[in-house]
Amino acid sequence: MFCNFIPYQWLKILKFVPKKTIAVRIAVNTRFLIPGRMEGIGWFTYHTLKIITQKHPEVEFIFLFDRPWDKGFVFGPNVHPVILRPPARHPVLWYLYFEYSIHEYLRRHRCDLFLSTDGFLSLRHKKTPQLAVIHDINFEHHPKFLPPLVRAYYRHFFPRYARHARRIATVSQWSANDLVKTYGVTSSKIDVVYNGASEIFAPISPAEKVSKRQMISDGKPYFIFVGAFNPRKNIEGLFRSFDLFADRIDRDFRLVIVGEKMHWTTSMQDSFRQMKHREKVIFAGRRQGRELNDILAASEGLWFVSNFEGFGIPIVEAFRAGVPVITSTVTSLPEVAGDAALLCNPADHYAIAEAMLRLARDSKLRNALIIKGMNRAKLFTWEDSAVRLWHSIEKTLL
């Protein structure tokens, strides 16, 4: 009765009239969502954001692309794609994109958070809290692995991104420790968000293995490498260790390499040309989804003895596919592999070749590693990754 005699405007002032709830708006750097061309960062972005956006329909997500987007990346009605220019595929364009285009967008539009899944931030922008996913800082330890201009850009800006970010997410405890040690970031500012592996990866039947081997290697058994041709992947070590292995094995093995020649260097080319058994190397190009699973699952083992990794997604994919793994003793790889793989010094090509021989000859060892690997794979799922990343988002919003 009392309210019938008070003007509506007064009720609003007195807070008797409830205000409309304003949705949280999160802007996301999604420039690595490129159909048919995704590597580790792209898959991290795809899987975590697909789950998060669908689990949180009350949140509005602005996906910021640097080129026309694919409709498959618009995961729901709460996802709004926006194109900002210029396409950020060169250090000069990186600077323009993040320090001007991103800054201006955040300045002109209300956003409660800027999430960057590749670690790049806008240093000019001070108002909107920023969460950087820094997968690793390999360029600080192996600068020669990158072209000079890219290396200089990373080493100049990433320490500043780490300081500028309200919070940092990274994909392994090893990477978290490295950020603390190298950049002086406090550990309380960092959240570990492990990578996962798609549920597409699973064992295939014996008949399917025979069929897939017939298609990919003329029926011959093979070891497989999955990844981009980058010096940190130890491509030269791959060629040299396979040569040593092929000299000693009494069966006709092949080496199948899945991936793009991202940085096909002169030293890689020379190592390949110097191979005694280079005719046994099969360059299979980029493969994804079920096609990749089948090629991986039909192999004798995964060769993934990198010089440096922030995580190493192919290890978990191989575990899920029922494939034994040879990996490295350095950086995050022991953390991911646990006791479910054979670990080797990436510089010791004889030890790597010996591990390949053990997998090729010892069926009991193979079976034991396969069982351990499938159990260990349960620790690394994209569902868990999404939960961890969302918790990091919540902390950043506080």
Rank of each mutant, 00 (worst) to 15 (best):
E317I: 12
L131C: 09
S332Q: 06
L146D: 09
P57F: 07
I393S: 08
A27D: 05
L11A: 07
F225W: 10
K71F: 04
P129Y: 04
G40I: 01
N307Q: 09
H125S: 08
G301Q: 04
L123C: 09
F304D: 00
P57C: 08
I352H: 01
D70Q: 05
V17E: 04
R388F: 02
T396R: 07
D250K: 15
V323E: 03
V281R: 15
S205K: 06
K144C: 04
L96I: 15
S116R: 04
A169T: 12
G322A: 02
Y194I: 01
F16D: 04
Q173I: 11
H164Q: 14
R25G: 00
T21W: 03
N345G: 03
P7M: 04
Q9T: 11
C111W: 00
G227V: 07
P231I: 05
Q130K: 07
K50M: 13
G285Q: 03
V150H: 12
R160F: 06
F114R: 09
V330R: 06
R232Y: 11
V193C: 02
F245R: 13
V256M: 03
T48M: 06
I190Q: 01
D294N: 15
F225R: 13
L11N: 09
V281C: 13
P18G: 02
Y100T: 15
I326L: 06
L302W: 07
D191L: 01
P86I: 14
P18L: 00
W303G: 01
S101Y: 00
C3L: 15
F44N: 00
I295S: 01
H164R: 12
A377K: 05
D118T: 07
L123H: 11
R278Q: 15
S392W: 05
E99W: 04
A341N: 04
I204H: 01
V180P: 02
V387R: 14
D70E: 10
P77S: 11
E208M: 14
E335P: 09
T182A: 12
D247W: 06
R251D: 10
F245L: 13
Y153A: 09
K181F: 10
W382D: 13
A318F: 01
W43H: 15
L113A: 08
W174L: 00
R376F: 03
K12H: 05
R376A: 09
I134H: 04
K144A: 10
G76W: 05
